[in-house]
Design a protein around this nucleic acid. Sequence first.
DNA 1: AGTGAAAATGGTTGGCA
DNA 2: TGCCAACCATTTTCACT
Lengths: 154, 154
Amino acid sequence: MSLDELDVKILSALSQDGRVKWSALAEQFGISAPAIADRVRRLENANVITGYAARLNAEKLGIDLTAFISVTLDHPRYRQGFVAYVEAADNIQSCHHIVGEGDYLLQVRCQSTADLERLLSDEIKSLPGIAQTRTTIALSTVKDSQSLPLSALV
Amino acid sequence: MSLDELDVKILSALSQDGRVKWSALAEQFGISAPAIADRVRRLENANVITGYAARLNAEKLGIDLTAFISVTLDHPRYRQGFVAYVEAADNIQSCHHIVGEGDYLLQVRCQSTADLERLLSDEIKSLPGIAQTRTTIALSTVKDSQSLPLSALV
DNA sequence: AGTGAAAATGGTTGGCA
DNA sequence: TGCCAACCATTTTCACT
């Protein structure tokens, strides 16, 4: 699917406000509301927009301990089990297969250091084939935007 | 602000589908649509819900090179300038002040290795007071959910 | 806090340029 | 693709519990 400039603008607007009214976008971009709706539907069908989510305040919810854990596996045969665990664990926000220090880099969210300790000791380190882990705790969050650099597309 | 069980369920539903109809939640939770709307408004006003966003497919958009960059500053006096840069740079998705290897951990999104090289050389390493950087490239993404572990709250 | 019904707003559909 | 206009769905308001 090819995107024109207006599509990118719509994507940008929807990443900032996923509940924006078509009529507001219509006015902003000088096009009609049904035309906006058409384009959004097209972007959804092409899986460029995969869904919508509320942005929650982790701090207000008391889930504001962020840590990064690099994990090294003993052998690739442990990958499948590890990945299955990662996908099911809702404390784990992201997991990337990396090159460098360790095999995987996890970003986790916990409520407390006790919670993190439990996650590390009782869960991650208890999985089969974990050779090594290294945990880095975030002292504070300078930026946490999940918006893609769409400006690069135009 | 204190959250009851229904609030948490609503937050969970809204993180999965930020455009869900109040009437659908109303039916699901056995309460009326205006009551759902009231609670959502309360959560918004309390800044528990900070907004809504479309989930975009980074791969389909060709912005699918993820890297982690740990940055060490020469001296805390460079912090302010560094933070200002980070906040303005839309390639930088997140930045955490960390303890351990380096001072800050950035997560960046690029279109290509050339793009990443430009970001590193022309931007980050050119900032005043950058003592060291260490870049880790993601070979693949196993998981990238931005949903908080709300189940821990109930 | 929550409800039900009415009013207001927004989304969707279909014929046409 | 996009527009307009009519139609339909949803949200919001409000008097009451």
